[in-house]
Design a protein around this nucleic acid. Structure first.
Length: 202
DNA sequence: CGGCTGATCGTG
DNA sequence: ACGATCAGCCGA
């Protein structure tokens, strides 16, 4: 298989909106218990530091949980949501500036990845869902994305610029006009910030 | 397809 | 107590 170039520290050292837009079409790579799984990123959201009412770091909340958001661009931030799902983010900017990009959706990058993602999702669903439902909604949400790519909180606070098993590579070319924007999901409490068009998708 | 709701637990 | 969610169930 053709090896693609890994994204550099410079890529992630930019603001969270630029990184969220530029991540579309790139390939998230994770070594799982079933082997390597590759997913093309097709939906992201930006969380913009201490001023963003929708962000965990709003008001400068630097706690054990939010610490990875403060780390250098390219650091993973994986947290537990609603008691049972994980959300996967990648920090943007530099140490001390807590911007991050939530990964909301991926598509399998190849057939082997598709098979592995289906198996991981079947396992994660514990028999509550049939294979056709899983195929239709393989990784189309932050929780499902994490299950499909085998991402857990063990993968929190990883330097994705250096890690041998968790990183992002170049992928498909994306033109500006292919990028759509909308309101972020699930942050109705964030007042005016709930209306910012900081969700990006293809 | 759209709206509503229970599940479940680490964090502050 | 409270979620950067999901899946099942309902009605259209």
């Amino acid at each position: 298989m053709e090896e693609r170039q890994r994204l550099s520290g410079e890529f992630f050292a930019r603001d969270g909106i630029t990184v969220a837009r530029e991540l579309l079409g790139k390939i998230l790579v994770h070594e799982t218990k079933l082997g390597i799984v590759r997913g093309v990123i097709t939906e992201t959201e930006s969380y913009m530091g201490e001023e963003d009412k929708g962000a965990h770091t709003y008001g400068g909340r630097r706690t054990q949980r939010t610490e990875p958001m403060y780390h250098q661009g390219g650091t993973s931030y994986v947290y537990l949501i609603y008691g049972m799902y994980s959300c996967m983010n990648i920090a943007a900017m530099t140490e001390g500036i807590p911007q991050a990009v939530l990964l909301r959706k991926v598509e399998p990058a190849d057939e082997q990845s598709r098979e592995r993602m289906e198996r991981l999702r079947l396992e994660g669903a514990k028999g509550r869902q049939n294979i056709s439902t899983i195929r239709k909604h393989l990784a189309d949400g932050p929780g499902k994305l994490c299950i499909a790519m085998g991402i857990t909180r063990k993968d929190n606070d990883i330097d994705m610029v250096e890690s041998p098993s968790f990183y992002v590579t170049e992928g498909m070319e994306v033109l500006e006009e292919q990028i759509k924007a909308g309101k972020r999901i699930g942050i109705d409490y964030a007042e005016e910030a709930a209306d910012y068009l900081w969700r990006f998708y293809l």
